[in-house]
Each structure stands twice: as structure tokens, then as C-alpha cells.
Amino acid sequence: MDRSRWLRRPTSLSRHVAAVLVAALIVFVAAATALWLVLGAPRLPQGAAFTVTDQLELVKIALAVVAGVGGVVALVVAYRRQAVVEEENERARAAARRDDTRLFNERFGSATTQLGHERPAVRAAAVYAVTGLADDAPTQELRQTCVSVLCAYLRMPYQPEPSAPDWVAGEREIRHAIVGTIRAHLAPGPLPDWNGCAFNLSGAVLEGVGLPGIRLTDGTHLNLTRCRVVGGPVDLRGAQFVGGRLTCTAIQLDAGAGFELGGAVAVGTRFVGGPLPPDLAAFVATMHDAGSQ
């Protein structure tokens, strides 16, 4: 049985006190015996009468022993009281975590359901609701869940051409809002930092990727594999690539699209592609040459 759990059992107090006293007695006897042996095992005088001074010394020793026993009992009781308080605090923290998770799940279910609503305004509101959930998430895993939902929305089939029969009014604004939300939470600022999350946009159709000023750190993965970028550039001006990974394998850049990297710096991020787009490859090469000088 775990020692701390045994100490907290109501029936174990007397046994614990007795065990501590026995241990203290054993230590005392062992120490006294060792001291007696070190002094050459002297014999006690035979037939010597106790004087008043000797009796007072015995009384002092007895009082010291009683005080020591009382101190041991007090220490045991204080230790058990502290252990119980710590256990109660841990139970309270666990209950709070369960309540936070339950509330998160309730809000998450409501928000994600609205993402499939037929009205664009409702879908837009759901995007901001999921964003708020990500900001309030009690754990990194739950934050990643919210980020994954937003990225999954961007990976859904999308027609950017208004003249096409399957074009959906209002969808462009919602997608721009999601990209803007990602940018705001990866750039230095007052909002909670979403670095450490994976942003899986593989295969998404994106009308420009406005991510100026973002800062990628370790644990972050921005995945643009097989993305089709139309109607605007991948805007990474002023970005700080100090960790994490940016994957651009088989990215498709339509006419007018490309990477804008003015003022960006890279000192630790892995750039993955087969091969990288020309303007991104030139940027990486420039940063590599600057770092080797």
C-alpha cells in the first residue's frame, strides 16, 4: 500500500504514532549503545546512593522523554492533517478540471454543429465561437482540437470563382476570417499563442494566405501540402521562423500567387517541399548563406 495513503486512513493514527515511537526508541537504544561502546563500555558504580541532584536530573530526563513523545505525536498529527489538506486540494483541482472539460465539450458541440449551418452568418459566428474555445482551452490537446476543426473547414471543397454554379455566397469571408484568426494567434500580440499546434491545410483551396508577421516556434507545423492558392499570394512578410516546420510539398500557385517574404527571417524552422517553390527556395538559400557567414 502507498505510504501516503496509509497515513491518511482514519484507523492508522494510533498505529502510526506507535510505529514512530518504536522507531525513535530503537534509534535511541542504538545511539546509547554506540556511545557506551565508544566510551569503553564503563561499568555503573555499585551501591551508590542517589543524591537530590541525581534525582532532579532523573526528573529532567523523564520530562524530556515525555516532551519528546508529545512532540512526536504532534508531528504525526500535523503531518496527517497536511496530507489530508493536500488530498482535498487535489480532489478540488481534479473536480475543477472535470468541470472545465465538461463545459468545454458542451460549448464545442454547440459551436461545431453551427459550422454546418446553411446561413453564412451562423457559420461565421461558429468560427469565432471555436476560436474562443481554443483560447479558453484548459489543455493543449483541447486547443489542438479546436485548431484542427478550423483547418478542417478550410480543407472542405470550395469554389473560389463566383461565376461557377457551385459557388457559395459568403464562404470567401468565412475562410478569410479563419486565416486571419490563425495569423492573429501566431503573431506576437495580446491574444493567446497558438504555437505548438499543427495547422493541417493540406489540399485546401485558399484565396491568398495572409500570414504577415507570424512567428513560428518549436512544435508548430504549418502544412500547405497540395494546397491550391488562388487570387493572392502566400503573404509571409515580416515572419519570424525560429522553430517548427513549414511544409509546401506539391503546393499549387495559380497566376498571381506566390510567396511574399519581405522582411522575414529564418533561423530554426524546417522548410519541407519537393521541391520548394522558387521564391521560397531563394529565401531559404539567402537565410542559409547569411547564417554561414
Rank of each mutant, 00 (worst) to 15 (best):
R107A: 11
L191H: 12
R97W: 09
V149P: 05
C151P: 07
A177K: 15
P212K: 08
Y158A: 09
T112S: 07
D166Q: 11
L103F: 05
P212N: 05
D99P: 00
S148M: 06
L216C: 06
R237I: 06
P212R: 05
G196S: 01
H185N: 05
I178D: 03
G132P: 11
E106Y: 11
L154N: 01
Q159N: 15
L222Y: 06
C227N: 12
E173F: 08
G132K: 09
L142K: 11
G189L: 10
S163C: 02
T139E: 10
V149M: 03
V149S: 03
E173W: 10
P120H: 04
G109F: 07
G232Y: 02
C151R: 06
G116V: 01
V168M: 03
T225W: 13
P165W: 06
F104S: 04
R98V: 10
G231T: 06
Q144K: 07
L222H: 09
A111H: 09
T101S: 11
Y128H: 15
A126M: 03
D100S: 13
R226G: 00
R215D: 10
L103Y: 02
R97E: 15
R143M: 07
L201T: 13
P160R: 00
I214T: 03
H176R: 15
P233R: 02
L142F: 04
W194I: 05
G180P: 04
S148C: 00
R107D: 11
D136R: 13
G213W: 01
A152W: 01
L186T: 10
L115M: 14
T225R: 14
E173V: 14
V209S: 02
R175A: 11
C146L: 06
P120M: 10
G232C: 02
L222V: 06
D193V: 03
P188Y: 07
E161N: 14
A177C: 05
L191F: 06
R143H: 12
R175Y: 12
A164T: 02
G210P: 12
L115F: 09
L133A: 09
Q140I: 09
P160G: 05
R237T: 13
R155F: 11
W167N: 04
D135C: 09
C146P: 08
L222A: 07
W167A: 14
L211F: 13
A111Q: 10
T181F: 00
R107P: 01
E106N: 04
P138H: 05
A129E: 15
L115D: 10
Q140H: 11
W194D: 01
G219H: 05
V149G: 07
C227K: 00
H117F: 03
P162T: 09
N200A: 14
A164M: 09
L115H: 08
G116E: 06
Y158C: 08
L115A: 11
R97C: 06
V230H: 00
L211H: 07
F199H: 01
L154V: 07
V234S: 05
P138W: 08
G196M: 02
